[in-house]
Amino acid sequence: MADTTATATPDMATSDDGIRRRDFLDIAAVSAAGIGGLAVVYPLVTQMAPSKDVLAASSTEVDVSAIEPGQAIKAVFRKQPLFVKRLTAEEIAAAERDDNAALRDPQTLADRTKEGHGDILVTMGVCTHLGCVPLGAAEGEVKGEYGGYFCPCHGSHYDTAGRIRKGPAPTNLEVPEYEFTSDTVIQVG
């Protein structure tokens, strides 16, 4: 309401120059406040990212020497299960037979193992559908229709190379980055 302003502030300087300078200052001051507010958002958001101790604890060593063919062990990598399996000759044969089959996420067994250690299959024990732990690593668990892993949550079947063959999961069980630090020890991460 212009008229009330005028009564309240009868001596207001209204030259063009004054108005412009005033507007500029106000805009600058409000912008500075806005920039400050945005800067505060940065630490408030990044504080939720993994802390230093969590990031540091992201490598795992596993000794594979004691795993018999057909057996698997569960290790922990980044607080998630890690399956390390020594495949039997039949399992390798089955996997290689399907290397050229119609796969949802085409990969050969060789792609998923390290050279010279073709019988050691290292995968995350995390179903690529919604993150449940598939069965098949422990003795006596259901291995699914393809003899590998079977996720009971929503019925995803993985073959002996951990490749998705049936069910809702979109991709093969993830093979994490790892290397053999000796003939019998792998380091994951």
């Binding site: 630490p43 504080q47 802390s51 230093k52 101790d53």
Partner: peptide, 13 residues
């Protein structure tokens, strides 16, 4: 101490 040392910007918070 975890907040002070390891959490991102935890010391500032």
């Amino acid at each position: 101490e975890h907040i002070m040392r390891d959490v991102n910007w935890g010391w500032l918070m």
